[in-house]
């Protein structure tokens, strides 16, 4: 059993290793979490996820760019792969389910993958449909999995026009499904015009927005 000081050291080490995109260090410290009986959930949330949140800030402040963020993401997943099987009880329960994909006509998926990662680390069950996803597929997957959230990504001005269409299709089958949209040409105004329930300008905000949307659903007694 690690002492409090040692636990803090490990969590800080995980945080720093994600920020420094030091995958080997993340693996070493994640194994130390298990060996020294540190709580895996705390290690994920206060170490890996907290580090990734800082990475989001560094990207927003133009100190980190996509190559660095992708490396940080690789480091984070290396830790998640080790720690997630050791979650237990309530901590292992999923926070919600999300269907995610880049809409039809669009092959850009860096942004979508970063949002997916944030959902992963926040404990969501993620159904990733990939890129250039046929609109019907979003509807089918939402119905099949009964996911609370459908997250749609688009980078192109052409493919963004598919968003209001797919939102309409999903809502026609399941009015309670919450839809969030994001991507370079999307703004809050565009999201509102498209009838989306949520919009996030970046990956970190996407998860906060999703949690708020699920809370709204629960308040309405629908989740």
């Amino acid at each position: 059993m690690a002492t409090d000081a040692r636990k803090k050291e490990i969590l800080k080490g995980l945080y720093d290793a994600v920020v420094d995109f030091d995958e080997d260090k993340v693996v070493e410290l994640s194994n130390a979490v298990l060996a020294e009986d540190v709580d895996a959930y705390e290690a994920i949330m206060d170490g890996l996820a907290a580090g990734m949140e800082h990475v989001g800030d560094l990207y927003a402040n133009q100190e980190y760019f996509v190559p660095e963020v992708l490396m940080c993401s690789d480091a984070l997943y290396a830790g998640l792969d080790i720690l997630r099987p050791h979650l237990s009880g309530k901590e292992a329960d999923v926070k919600g389910q999300v269907v995610i994909g880049t809409v039809e006509g669009d092959v850009h998926d860096i942004g979508k993958n970063l949002v997916k990662m944030m959902f992963d680390v926040a404990g969501f069950e993620v159904h990733d449909l990939g890129r250039d996803v046929k609109l019907e597929k979003f509807v089918e997957e939402q119905m099949k999995t009964d996911s609370e959230i459908v997250a749609l990504s688009a980078l192109m001005t052409t493919s963004m026009l598919a968003m209001p269409k797919v939102i309409e299709m999903i809502k026609a089958r399941n009015p309670d499904a919450m839809i969030m949209v994001g991507g370079a040409p999307i703004s809050q105004e565009v999201a509102d015009n498209y009838g989306a329930d949520g919009y996030a300008p970046n990956a970190a905000n996407a998860v906060q927005e999703a949690i708020q949307m699920i809370s709204r659903l629960r308040e309405m007694g629908k989740a």
Partner: peptide, 12 residues
Amino acid sequence: MPTSEWEGAPSV
């Protein structure tokens, strides 16, 4: 080549 309703340009 862009053939679907939502494609605006060729993609790899």
